[in-house]
Simulated assay, not measured.
Amino acid sequence: MASHHLPHHESHGNHPMSVIGYVLVLGGFASAALWLVSMAGGHVAAAILFGLLMIGAFAVAASIFLSLNHRHHHSPVLPDNTEPELDRYMRRYRE
């Protein structure tokens, strides 16, 4: 029977919801750009739609980041869920 060894994968320590928050922030900036262009072009309905999408995306992203920070005590930016991971991260990327 052959044994298969999977390559060791080190966890990056980021919570999966922080990725969703990041994507929502990117979507919020894209909606902000489209809101500005629609407003300047005189397209009122599109401007209202993109403005609401922008506010919604930023509000949901902020609530995700605040929830991760306060409820779960996990930074949405730094992978600091354990001391060894934080030390490893700081040695690898900050020095």
Score class of each variant (00 low, 15 high):
Asn69Cys: 07
Thr82Ala: 03
Pro79His: 11
Val25Leu: 12
Ser11Arg: 05
Leu53Gln: 05
Ala32Val: 06
Arg71Gly: 04
Met39Arg: 14
Ser3Phe: 00
Pro16Lys: 08
Ala40Leu: 14
His43Cys: 00
His5Gln: 15
Gly27Glu: 05
Asn81Gln: 05
Leu68Gln: 10
Gly13Cys: 03
Met17Asn: 07
Val19Ala: 15
Val44Phe: 13
Leu68Asn: 07
Ile20Glu: 12
His8Thr: 01
Ile48Asn: 09
Gly21Ser: 15
Ser18Gln: 07
Ile55Gly: 00
Leu49Lys: 05
Ser3Tyr: 01
Leu6Pro: 04
Met39Asp: 13
Leu66Arg: 07
Pro16Gln: 06
Ser11Trp: 00
Ala46Ile: 09
Ala32Arg: 04
Asn14Thr: 06
Ser38Val: 12
Ala2Val: 12
Ser63Met: 13
His4Asn: 12
Leu24Val: 10
Met54Gly: 08
Phe65His: 06
Ile20Arg: 04
Val23Phe: 06
His5Ser: 14
Asn14Ile: 12
Ile20Gln: 11
His9Gly: 04
His5Asn: 10
Ile48Gly: 00
Val77Pro: 06
Ala59Gln: 08
Ala40Asp: 07
Leu53Thr: 09
Tyr22Asn: 03
Gly51Ser: 07
Ala47Gln: 09
Pro76Ala: 10
Ala47Lys: 09
Ala33Phe: 11
Ala30Arg: 04
Ala59Leu: 13
Asp80Asn: 15
Phe58Glu: 07
Thr82Gly: 06
Ser75His: 15
Val60His: 01
Ala45Ile: 02
Arg71Ile: 02
Ala62Val: 01
Leu24Glu: 11
Val60Tyr: 06
Pro76Ile: 02
Pro16Ala: 09
Val60Arg: 01
His9Ala: 14
Ala2Gln: 11
Ala45His: 05
Ser63Leu: 13
Val44Pro: 00
Gly21Asn: 09
